[in-house]
């Protein structure tokens, strides 16, 4: 993979990151309706699909690290959360991908596992930092469940177009 393809893929990831925030702002009333909180995770979807459909992208872990750092700095100002978790998601996905054939159903299932790990880790870190008082009993039905549901829907809608886009951007001209 040459420089040009890498830059376009990084651009796509940054766009997905910014879209996360914009969607969250646009539908704030719907997504954050008490007691449910839905968190869009298009960035994670982008990373996941790049593991599968841009296998030549060999600096994906470093890219995920930098992206996580920007994500932390721009959205929350608390560094070290997504900076650690985005590369972890890439590693984890690569590890799981070894055991399965990459069919849409399997990729969807891996996405859900990734998100469960990610959300739980984010929750644990926020509890550790004293940013939230939510109990685990409330977290699982009110945050984790709706978030998985929302992202599954987004996955179903975006899987095909994003896959084609990434495969096209990632292939050598």
């Amino acid at each position: 993979m040459r420089m040009r393809e890498k830059v376009t893929l990084c651009g796509l990831l940054s766009l997905l990151m910014l879209l996360d925030g914009s969607i969250s702002y646009l539908f704030a009333g719907t997504l954050h309706q008490f007691p449910n909180t839905m968190i869009t995770r298009l960035t994670v979807l982008g990373l996941l699909l790049m593991v599968f459909f841009a296998p030549d992208f060999n600096h994906l872990v470093i890219t995920a690290l930098v992206l996580g750092l920007l994500y932390d700095s721009f959205y929350t100002g608390v560094l070290g959360v997504y900076m650690f978790l985005f590369p972890l998601v890439v590693y984890f996905t690569r590890w799981m991908a070894k055991f399965f054939a990459s069919t849409p159903l399997i990729i969807g299932a891996i996405y859900l596992i990734d998100l469960t790990v990610l959300e739980s880790a984010v929750y644990a870190m926020n509890t550790f930092m004293g940013q939230t008082t939510l109990s685990l009993n409330d977290f699982i039905p009110n945050v984790l469940g709706p978030t998985l549901a929302l992202n599954l829907v987004l996955f179903i809608i975006l899987y095909l177009p994003l896959r084609q886009l990434i495969a096209k951007l990632g292939s050598v001209y």
Partner: peptide, 15 residues
């Protein structure tokens, strides 16, 4: 004007 909002609701931040 509001630019965006943090996707996760833990911090309740606006930009």
């Amino acid at each position: 004007a509001v630019l965006t909002r943090s996707p996760a609701n833990w911090q309740n931040n606006l930009v």
